[in-house]
Amino acid sequence: MSGPGASAAAIQRHYDIGDEFYALWLDESRTYSCALWEGEEDLHAAQLRKIDWHLARCGAQGVRRLLDIGCGWGALLRRATERHGVAQAVGLTLSAAQQRLIEANGRPRVEARLEGWAEHRPGATYDAIVSIGAFEHFARLDQSPAEKLAGYRAFFTFCHEALAPGGRLSLQTITYENADRRDFSRFFAEHIFPESDLPHLTEIVSAAQGLFEIEQLRQDRAHYARTARAWLSRLKAQRAAAEALVGAETVERYKKYLGLLVLGFHAGTMNLARIGLRRLEKWR
């Protein structure tokens, strides 16, 4: 069991179609989430700025233990240990390909585990937690609103228990903005993100209530439209290589998916939330 959201099998259908395919159109850090843009820099610089923003938000500088829930190909784990003085960075992913790649890189202070947060048993508490682009997978379309909220609540409860007192969680996720699950594209649901439902901002706020205070909130959908445009552009430029790796049909599907991302963020059916949260201590 990976937790209340998408199963490991569903996640692997999306992420395990090939490391090289993603490497063709993601930036060289292989970050697969919304970047943080400032001015005219390239995608890679904007992705690193995003990583640094989250590490600063959760107070990771020089800490002993950091947890990255949904670590992708490990860019944040690497940067935390190499640039932010983190002594031990642990990443969780449901993708076997991602976990293998991070472990194969053999960085001593980096550990990648093939497990969901719900099954993770931290040996010791963490000083800081980051989760970027994974919360989208923590609920399923077939859940009732109450079940969905309970799943999110379980996530924040896990983070609360895993964090040291006063510790921070920096969260980034796509949300429904001017839309809801009834509008969720069947195409997304069937072909791209099976078993996944997006949160409303209010659901995040209410699931965290009493466990975390929200210190900061940024809504950055324009940043995601720009990120997805950059991905799409790169995929088109690498089309022949991409088709050789995964076939023309899959490339076509990803072009549509990235186009839909651009459109959704541009039109405001979806938004991108970056939320800085701080663990609340019990006072009674």
Binding site: S185, F187, K255, K256, G259, L260, L263, G264, A267
Partner: peptide, 11 residues
């Protein structure tokens, strides 16, 4: 035309 068809048309 829904959003998928519109993205497909532009493609």
């Amino acid at each position: 035309l829904d959003s998928l068809a519109s993205v497909g048309m532009i493609g």
